[in-house]
Amino acid sequence: MTEQGMIGIENLRVAFGQGADSVVAVDGVSLSVRDGESFGLVGESGSGKSTVLRAVSGLNHDWSGRVAVAGVEQSRRRAKGFFKTCQMVFQDPYGSLHPRHPVDRILAEPIAIHGLGDTDGRIDRVLLEVGLGPSFRFRYPHQLSGGQRQRVAIARALVLEPRLLLLDEPTSALDVSVQAEILNLLRRLRAERGLTLVLVSHNLAVVANLCDRLAVMNRGRIVEEMTVEDLRRGEAAQPYTRQLLRASQGYDRAAAESFRDFA
């Protein structure tokens, strides 16, 4: 199973809606992520990057193609055990925590679902691991800042000790100083736990900071795959990627003039 890597996707296709109104969000995507690798999925809104992530995580059932996680071929509905391998962190820390559950309950729930035992010990350990002390354990989400909420969301994903962590724009709703803290935390957790990360983001600099390799998506297809070293050197093969690189470098009157749509 290690030869296959952590994620193997072949010819993934996701369409929303029925018949004539159906919109193809992901159109024949194939990619693989090695065990222990940190992989970035980059694109603009509507590129299908989040849809790929949701198909891998099991949140989206309407896909066709082949998805394998940790060497196990996945069907549309996931068995309970799958979620101990693969967890996800969402973009909006204000929407991803139940507003009426205290941190304690949020973290105790996955432990109860999977019958793991030692609830108190696990909660205290994971809170320390994400940089929140035990004093946070009985707070409600509304008593936490955005960064603290995102740490709780990461703790919730880690409490099941997964090998694969899917990150859907985990820092784009946060201030830059908090973004730096969360990126540092994710990097440290990856090193400590040997996690495989898949990071979906529109921000090339964030992807470069956390990932080893990335794929650029546009309109449901992968435009190109490259290493972060290539990205840092600006060595993109495709014009779409070059345009994205240029746009992320700050405002430039001449560059804005040259932008075009890529179908």
Binding site: Q179, A180, N184, A205, R232
Partner: peptide, 14 residues
């Protein structure tokens, strides 16, 4: 604290 493409350091100053 901003990650930058032209700066390959990993740990960001907080």
């Amino acid at each position: 604290s901003l990650p930058r493409l032209d700066d390959p350091r990993a740990e960001l100053p907080v």
